[in-house]
């Protein structure tokens, strides 16, 4: 343990400012929010991920703050903890944010992340996206990880397999889908997030 203790977490509350959201905050393929910005697009396969967030009894939960964090298309991070950070795509930041809409809908545009051999554990990580959910009623954030369907590396992924029950693991595998709001050139996936209930999304100890 370090000598300083982390400041307690607290709920984001119901009043997270709407004007914190830029037009491209949920589009990870661009690195700017400026109107008409001609920033280069991130490398990789463009994907669209959307779904609905529910609280107990399948009630859609609007005004949830959802954040993505992921590797670039080749499995690198622009961060000093990644020994191969110099290989990270300069046009990809890996982060996005979105508030769920009145009907609980959320969506992100991003690129499919690459897997990597993890230098901390020596294990191979399958392609995945870390997701944080914050909101009123959540004194601490909830964290989960999305995985991709038909990925052989899922079988050896240490986070995927931290969930012993295959039926529960299935709930964080993205499902191929179609959405009217998706960009025409994106592969589309659905994943509904159930905060509480029988088919609750598995969340990790943070």
């Amino acid at each position: 343990m370090g000598k300083f203790v982390p400041t307690p977490s607290c709920t984001v509350g119901p009043f997270f400012p709407a004007h914190y959201f830029g037009p491209n905050d949920n589009d990870l393929t661009v690195t700017s929010n400026a109107a008409g910005a001609s920033s280069k697009r991130a490398q990789g396969t463009k994907i669209y991920i959307a779904g609905t967030i529910y609280e107990a009894d399948r009630v859609p939960r609007w005004n949830s703050i959802v954040e993505f964090w992921q590797a670039d298309a080749s499995g690198h991070f622009a961060h000093p903890n990644d020994p191969e950070s110099s290989k990270a795509d300069p046009d990809f930041m890996g982060w996005g944010r979105r508030a769920s809409e009145d009907d609980g809908y959320y969506d992100f545009i991003t690129v499919k992340p690459g897997g990597y051999k993890d230098p901390l554990t020596g294990l191979v990580r399958a392609p995945h996206i870390n997701v944080s959910i914050m909101g009123s009623g959540l004194m601490r954030r909830l964290v989960t990880t999305f995985f991709f369907p038909d990925e052989p590396a899922n079988a050896g992924d240490p986070v995927f397999n931290a969930i012993p029950d295959a039926k529960v693991r299935e709930r964080i595998i993205l499902k191929p889908a179609k959405f009217p709001r998706a960009p025409a050139d994106a592969l589309c996936y659905r994943l509904d997030i159930v905060l509480q209930g029988e088919d609750e999304t598995p969340f990790f100890l943070d």
């Binding site: 609280e55 964090w69 961060h79 995945h128 909101g135 009123s136 509480q196 969340f203 100890l205």
Partner: peptide, 23 residues
Amino acid sequence: TITRVPMQGFYKRPATLTEVTGP
């Protein structure tokens, strides 16, 4: 907090690069 907090507990997972990096 009654209707939005998960009931089924939290899974312990290892910290890998995705957890120790950030924007």
